[in-house]
């Protein structure tokens, strides 16, 4: 299993992600720097959370124009698996690897708390094939711009073609703020057309130990990595 974590100035979840991956594979992931123009063949690249380039201009906008992105796009066109978490998801969208847009949270608040994600009926994807539709994972979010939006045409394409990976789920009938950012249709994560790229706002690497209050993130990452290795 060859994994890597891509790091930009301002990334701050890279180490947590590396710890999570090492816990699963027994091997530290390679670290890719934003200026790297060469990368070896890899099975999985993760773009971690953080505030790349200080969120200047738009979240992820400057990172998405970094030299390493060309390698990441090549990796994707070779069929490599790619996971973008939080700011990583924003970068994937700014790089046009995933469609739509992530805008300011509806309530204008930075939201840092646990959310419940419901696995959707999606296309074949290594990130989800170990789960059943309707399975729930408790994984925390921490973001200011996680409100996913898309035009009607794109939303239909995502909904009808199984490209929505996770939605925020109500834990009870009376709960009203289960969606932490106001995203369209409660979308928390989406897939590429071939299912091998996943962008998600919640942070699985922040839920890998009982000290975190839960290990659903570890379960998700472990099963994803198992499927990617095949």
């Amino acid at each position: 299993m060859r994994t890597a974590v891509a790091i930009f100035p301002g990334s701050n979840c890279d180490r947590d992600m590396a710890v999570a991956i090492k816990k699963i594979t027994g091997k530290s992931p390679l670290k890719l720097w934003h200026k790297d123009t060469e990368a070896p063949n890899l099975d999985l690249i993760v773009i971690p959370g953080g505030f790349s380039f200080g969120d200047y201009l738009r979240c992820g906008a400057l990172a998405a124009r970094s030299p390493i992105i060309k390698n990441i796009k090549n990796h994707v066109s070779r069929g490599g698996a790619l996971l973008g978490v939080c700011n990583g998801f924003q970068i994937l969208i700014e790089a046009n690897i995933l469609p739509g847009s992530l805008v300011r949270n509806k309530k204008l608040l930075f939201t840092c708390r646990e959310t419940t994600l419901e696995v959707q009926d999606s296309i074949q994807s290594p990130f989800l094939s170990s789960f059943n539709t309707g399975d729930c994972l408790n994984i925390p979010v921490a973001h200011n711009e996680g409100n996913y939006i898309a035009n009607n045409e794109l939303l239909k394409e995502l909904e009808n073609n199984g490209r929505i990976a996770f939605k925020y789920k109500k834990s009870s009938e009376i709960e009203t703020d289960y969606n932490p950012n106001g995203s369209l249709n409660d979308i928390a994560g989406i897939l590429s057309e071939n299912g091998r790229v996943l962008g998600m706002m919640p942070h699985p690497e922040r839920s890998i130990s009982s000290l975190h209050g839960g290990t659903d993130g570890l379960k998700f990452l472990t099963k994803s990595i198992e499927q990617i290795v095949g």
Partner: peptide
């Protein structure tokens, strides 16, 4: 049509 929460505030 794009939500502008800052504008709303």
């Amino acid at each position: 049509g794009v939500l502008d929460p800052e504008g709303q505030a």
